Amino acid sequence: MKKKPTRGGDSHSLRIRKRIIRKIERGEYLPGEKLAGERELAKQYDVTRRTVQYALDELAKKGYLERRQGSGTFVRKNIVNKMDLNYISERGNAGITAIVKNHGAKISNKILTRGIVSGKFFSCRLDLPEGAPVYALHRIRYGNDEPIAVEYTYVPAQLFPDIDDIDFEKVSLYDYMDSETRMPKKFIQKLQIIEATEKERNYLELNKKEPVYYFEFIGYDETGVIVEYTESYTRCDKFEYKFDAKA
């Protein structure tokens, strides 16, 4: 029976992209290595050639592959694999923006929600009087157009009166805080590896039971005032955290 053509952007294309990315990250595909031809890949993944073409084109746009007319498809030699979360510890919480840029990737953001919230939980985390206004900024962070983290950030609204006027899809939150002389300089951090909830899995395009790094940050400015509380869900397949164990 003749296969029914599939649309390039459907689940078959996404499945192919994820498998190729995993092979690159695991070293099964090496930098500069040529991939099998489109017909062979279509047979391997049991999809149409059109679906394979779309998947490879999307991976080329995101910097994983290089398409050379007349020669084939190759793994890019300057591919960015796992980014180093130790950059946070070395520089203070430099943030996802600094980590991604330090590894030569393009950073972008999608705002999920923003605005004033209140509650005992946030007041406690930010050392504010109960009922004091707190500004919430929830974002998906992207590296080379691929979701790499979801961040839920809360700051004291009274310290940032014009925060609602800032376009945080284009402006770094820390650049803005620095312009207000409220840049976090010291952090209390907590790190866990957990199973992502369905909501975070959807945001990060993860399969069920894939783990994520869960961070909590409390940031203090140079005067010792708490200026940030952030919860971050970060993809384990895009970052690694190394440490020295001493006896």
Rank of each mutant, 00 (worst) to 15 (best):
E222P: 04
L56S: 05
L126A: 00
D221H: 07
C236S: 11
F239A: 02
L112N: 09
D221P: 00
Q189A: 11
Y174E: 08
H103A: 11
A105Q: 10
L85A: 09
V117C: 04
L159W: 08
L204S: 02
E195F: 00
Y64N: 02
Y229S: 15
K77L: 01
I79K: 14
A42H: 05
T230M: 15
L41N: 01
G115E: 10
R39T: 15
G70K: 14
K185N: 06
L159K: 07
S118I: 06
A98D: 09
G104M: 15
Q192T: 13
E200H: 07
E198V: 09
N93I: 00
D178T: 02
I88A: 00
L206N: 03
L35W: 10
P133K: 13
G27R: 13
K23M: 13
T48K: 09
K18F: 06
A94D: 03
E151D: 10
G95T: 04
K209C: 05
V47L: 04
T230D: 15
A149E: 12
L41G: 02
A105Y: 14
Y142D: 02
M177P: 00
T223Y: 08
E146I: 14
P161L: 14
I107T: 15
E210K: 01
S179F: 03
T223C: 06
G9P: 04
Y152A: 07
H138S: 03
V225E: 01
Q192V: 01
K186I: 14
E200M: 14
H138V: 03
L30A: 12
L159H: 13
V150Q: 01
E151P: 00
V150C: 14
I88V: 09
A245N: 07
Y229F: 15
F122R: 03
K34L: 09
K2W: 15
Q44T: 09
G27C: 08
A149W: 01
I194G: 10
P156N: 13
M83Q: 11
A42P: 02
Y64M: 08
